[in-house]
Simulated scan of single mutants.
Amino acid sequence: MDFKSLPQLLDHFKEEKTCIEYYENIRWAGKPVCPHCDAEHPYVTTRGYKCSNNECYKKFTVKVGTIFENSKISLRTWFAAIWRCTNHKKGISSVQLSLDLGITQKTAWFVLHRVREMLKDKSPRMLGEYGMVEADEAYIGQREQTKHYSKRRSDENPSLRNDGSPYVEKKVIVGIIERNGKVVLKHVPNATKKNMVALIEKHVPKGAKIYTDESKVYKSLKKHYTHETVKHALSIYVAGDVHTNTIENFWSVLKRGLVGVYHQVSEKHLERYLDEFSARFNTRDITTSDRFQNFLKESESYLSHKRLIGVK
């Protein structure tokens, strides 16, 4: 099962039966459990299973309660989508995925968002317990000087564009990264002390070493952390161990993915894209085959189309 490439993966999973048996072993390890009531020892049916609990007695398959639920796409296609999404360093667009897998762009878009639902970190750990941490913020959006005049901020009314429509500020992302470790990302409304420091206090234990730039929002970190700043304003980017180059390198990958691959990401779904990029980064040290299997173990996250687009 040590797949080293997509062709090897597809060669192994030629039949749907093989995919189902593989996924049942990943999810249940040979002991099927009813996803509705957690009852064990279900009856085997021609299409899956039937709960043995008389109060439940519902039919189900291994897909129920997972990202694959209510999907007419074969597991073979799903596996290929997961492989491609999790192994492309900067992601893959729904247009490209639809061409690669022979599905519609709309379907590929939904598939990718379900995969991102699977990639959410279910149990985020504290950063900096055994090393140094860097914190920084990134701004996603077009530069003001490169915008068309009609889309620039109005001088008369800063809340509007020159064409009269509401002005949209750049999206702010806070990032915390442990050197040689994991990254935590969060989209926040604005780069204030409340938003920035709150995330750090949530994911970094008190007393840890943390490095940032000279922004005023980080000044209060000295109360609980060993906090040092790098003087970017003085063109000083490294002073011994004090630098933010690790998080800056991560920002370059994130921005190239969001701009170069996805081109435009709505604020509504930005957090899901951040989950995707952080999941790939946090599993960079394991093999592609292990990454694929580990993510499948976290696939018990159902996402309906109505919930995705915000329809009640």
Rank of each mutant, 00 (worst) to 15 (best):
D2I: 10
K4R: 15
K4F: 00
P7V: 11
Q8K: 14
Q8G: 03
E16Q: 07
K17I: 07
T18F: 02
E21S: 15
N25S: 11
I26D: 13
R27Y: 09
G30N: 13
P32G: 12
V33Q: 15
C34G: 13
A39R: 11
A39N: 15
E40A: 13
E40M: 06
H41Y: 14
H41C: 07
R47F: 11
R47Y: 08
G48Y: 12
G48D: 14
E55W: 15
T61W: 00
V62A: 11
N70V: 07
S74F: 12
S74P: 14
L75T: 00
L75V: 01
T77W: 12
A81Y: 05
T86H: 01
N87L: 05
N87F: 05
K89G: 05
I92E: 08
S93T: 04
L97T: 02
S98V: 04
L99N: 05
L101Q: 04
T104V: 04
Q105A: 05
Q105S: 02
Q105C: 03
T107C: 11
W109V: 11
L112W: 08
V115S: 04
M118G: 01
M118Y: 02
L119S: 02
K122N: 10
S123T: 11
R125G: 07
M126V: 08
Y130G: 01
D136F: 02
E137Q: 07
I140R: 00
G141T: 00
E144R: 03
T146C: 14
Y149I: 15
R161G: 05
R161C: 11
I173C: 08
V174I: 07
V174E: 02
I176T: 09
I176A: 03
G181A: 06
L185A: 06
K186M: 14
V188Q: 01
N195M: 11
M196E: 00
A198R: 04
K202I: 02
K202A: 06
V204Q: 11
P205D: 08
K206A: 09
A208V: 00
A208D: 03
K209P: 06
D213N: 03
E214K: 12
V217R: 07
L221H: 03
K222H: 13
H224R: 14
T226E: 15
A233N: 01
I236T: 12
N245Y: 05
E248Q: 01
K255V: 03
G257M: 03
G257R: 02
V259P: 15
G260N: 09
V265T: 04
S266V: 05
E267V: 08
L274K: 01
S278D: 03
A279D: 15
T283V: 07
R284C: 14
S289N: 05
Q293W: 04
N294V: 01
F295P: 04
F295R: 00
E298G: 04
E300F: 12
H305L: 12
K306V: 03
L308C: 12
L308I: 06
L308Q: 10
